[in-house]
Write a protein that binds this DNA or RNA. Structure first.
Length: 486
RNA sequence: GGCGGCAUAGCCAAGUGGUAAGGCAAGGGUCUGCAAAACCUUCACCCCCAGUUCAAAUCUGGGUGCCGCCUCCA
């Protein structure tokens, strides 16, 4: 089976072939650290986290690099507002990033380069661009001359002539840099320091890098001239990724990345979730509501990664219900494995080959169709949940234990690929000091007597009392009452 | 104005030529003193029009609607 993915550059779905067989070099444009991450960031991080996990599961050795933009006007503004420094602000939100993403079960990248740690590489690149005639200095700034790069626009599919400056309506008509630029679409590689701003020395004078150049420099430093996969939000296609291509390829003469992949936006009431619209919800707000982190992952993975997804309370609730189903399946082995005589162990993921795995893989191989893959997990989980219920309600099941064990291992393995994990001791960890088994049995006996005497008020009282302590009674045909702790 | 994308049940969503996965929600049934739980079960001709084809949700052309980007952006 072969993996194909949609390449923004060619606007086609293509067979995935890494530069070096078996190895994948992947870069994800991370966040600018001036505030807490919101659900939109979470979506991007979850998607690329799962893509990475999937590639690894498919047998690739993946080197995954993700940057932090820690030099930026918005960080400076934030620092100014609160009377601290850019470093202080950046550091704080990097920490917050790790907390939030840790809670969402995002695996850490192999490296997290930062703009402030990449100044050498950035300056080297600007120098090379200057020498090759792609960049020009202007009053302490340095700009990229977009006209000089004939392929400018190839990623976003636009021509310079077609671009209407300020058409988005978000840009003020008077661009303070306009007088220094040769052309409106030229962009800053280096910005002269204004008084009181953090600055680095350079041959153009004290200043700081523009936004796009850091990624070109980091990719080159950490992964080489050409990488396999370059990922990011769809809103970065233009200008950010377009500019990265212009910077890197002008210098190296080689493709920056063979596959450009972009995730769709999270919307609220059909509008993009963003800081400027103020319609965002931060990850920590959402988690503290509380929302199960796995429900958030599921919410994201149920949708095709390139399409927009609309955030609503109902959608999260539906994802939570869906997760409850998967969780019951995932906990099956821990709860019933012993009873079924398995050697219950933490599920490793040894290669498994069976129809479910094949169905999962052929779905996800098709441009990361996680929703299609999830259908397999749901089928397994529902089956296991049913078997678990049979064990609770009837004390037995007709299905051979080896079959159940196999299904469970498949489910756990596939769930791990998606970063979905149910903690075995989630509830078990909570000490249940309440009633002992014997006390419960005694109460049930009392209730049975009451029922026989048709004293239903009393029998219901006992049932409610037990329920209040987290003990659910199951009245079966034939007058037998089973019970279990919730 | 330019470029790109999307349109499948109440909601989310897969399916890219052969007669509609999966999830959530909802309804019905069995069981029960009632309930809960559980189990069984029901639920779409795919935005509109025209065309290609033995056959189209799937291809082509034309509409309509929605979204993203056009130098803040995941």
């Amino acid at each position: 089976m072969t993996l194909t993915l949609y390449n923004t550059l060619t606007r086609r779905q293509e067979l995935f072939e890494p530069l070096e067989p078996g190895k994948v070099r992947m870069y994800y444009c991370g966040v600018t650290v001036y505030d807490y991450c919101h659900l939109g960031h979470a979506r991007a991080c979850i998607i690329w986290d799962v893509v990475r996990r999937y590639l690894q599961w498919r047998g690739y050795e993946v080197r995954f690099v993700q940057n932090f933009t820690d030099i930026d006007d918005k960080i400076l503004n934030k620092a100014r507002q609160e009377g601290s420094s850019m470093e202080e602000v950046a550091e704080r939100f990097i920490q917050a990033y790790f907390e939030d993403m840790g809670r969402l079960n995002i695996k850490e990248a192999d490296e997290y380069p930062r703009a402030t740690h990449t100044l050498d590489g950035i300056q080297r690149l600007i120098h090379e661009l200057e020498h090759k005639g792609y960049a020009y200095p202007a009053q302490g700034d340095v700009y990229y001359a977009v006209r000089r790069f004939p392929e400018y626009g190839k990623l976003s599919g636009r021509k310079l002539e077609d671009m209407q400056a300020g058409a988005s309506g978000r840009v003020g008509v008077e661009d303070p840099e306009a007088s220094k630029k040769q052309e409106a679409n030229d962009f800053a590689l280096w910005k002269a320091a204004k008084p009181g701003e953090p600055a680095w020395e350079s041959s153009w004078g004290a200043g700081r890098p523009g936004w796009h150049i850091e990624c070109s420099a980091m990719v080159r430093d950490r992964l080489g001239d050409t990488i396999d996969i370059h990922a990011g939000g769809a809103d970065l296609i233009f200008p950010h990724h377009e500019n990265e291509i212009a910077q890197s390829e002008a210098v190296t003469g080689k493709p920056l990345a063979n596959y450009w992949v972009h995730n769709g936006m999270v919307t609220v009431n059909g509008e993009k979730m963003s800081k400027s619209l103020g319609n965002f919800i931060t990850i920590r707000e959402l988690l503290d509501r509380p929302t199960d982190p796995m429900a958030i992952r599921l919410f994201v993975l149920m949708a095709q990664y390139r399409k927009p997804i609309d955030f609503t309370q109902d959608a999260i609730a539906a994802a939570q219900n869906g997760w409850n189903t998967l969780k019951e399946g995932l906990l099956f082995g821990y709860e019933y494995g012993g009873q079924l005589g398995w050697a219950v162990r933490e599920a490793e993921n040894p290669p498994i080959q069976n129809p479910q795995v094949e169905r999962f893989q052929s779905a996800v191989d098709d441009d990361f169709n996680f929703a299609g893959g999830l259908a397999v997990l749901f089928e397994l989980a529902k089956e296991l949940r049913k078997e678990g219920n049979l064990l609770v309600h009837q004390g037995k099941t007709e299905t051979p234990p080896q079959v159940l064990e196999q299904q469970w291992h498949t489910l756990v393995t596939l769930a791990q690929v998606l970063g979905l994990a149910a903690k075995a001791n989630d509830e078990a960890a909570q000490p249940s000091p309440g009633l002992s088994d014997a006390e419960i049995e005694a109460l049930i006996q009392q209730r049975q007597s009451a029922r026989k005497a048709k004293n239903f008020a009393e029998s219901d009282r006992i049932r409610n009392e037990l329920q209040a302590q987290g003990i659910t009674l199951i009245d079966q045909a034939g007058g037998v009452t089973r019970w279990h702790r919730n």
